Computed example of a mutant assay.
Amino acid sequence: MTYALLSAVFLGVAALVLVVALATARDRASLIRRWWAPVLIAAVVVLVLTAVFDNLMIGVGFMTYDEVRISGARLGLVPVEDFAYPLAGLLLLPALWLLTRRGSRS
Rank of each mutant, 00 (worst) to 15 (best):
L16F: 13
L18W: 05
V19S: 10
V19D: 02
V20M: 13
V20P: 12
A21Q: 07
L22Q: 08
A23R: 11
T24V: 15
A25R: 03
A25C: 04
A25T: 06
R26S: 14
R26E: 11
D27K: 06
R28A: 03
R33T: 01
R33S: 03
R33M: 04
R34I: 01
R34D: 04
R34T: 02
W35S: 15
W36M: 04
A37W: 11
P38C: 12
L40C: 12
A42L: 11
A42I: 06
V44M: 04
V45P: 05
L47G: 06
V48P: 00
T50I: 11
T50V: 12
T50H: 12
A51E: 12
A51I: 12
V52F: 13
D54H: 01
D54T: 06
N55V: 05
I58Q: 05
G59Q: 00
G59E: 09
V60C: 10
V60S: 11
V60R: 14
F62Q: 12
M63F: 14
T64W: 09
Y65N: 02
Y65R: 03
D66C: 02
D66T: 09
V68H: 12
V68P: 14
S71P: 08
S71Y: 01
S71I: 03
S71H: 00
A73D: 13
A73L: 14
A73S: 12
A73W: 11
R74C: 11
L75Y: 03
L75W: 10
L75T: 10
L75Q: 09
G76C: 08
L77G: 05
L77E: 04
P79N: 03
V80D: 08
E81K: 07
E81L: 00
D82V: 04
F83W: 00
A84H: 07
Y85H: 10
P86V: 07
P86D: 08
A88H: 05
A88G: 10
A88L: 08
G89C: 01
L93P: 00
L93A: 15
P94R: 07
P94N: 11
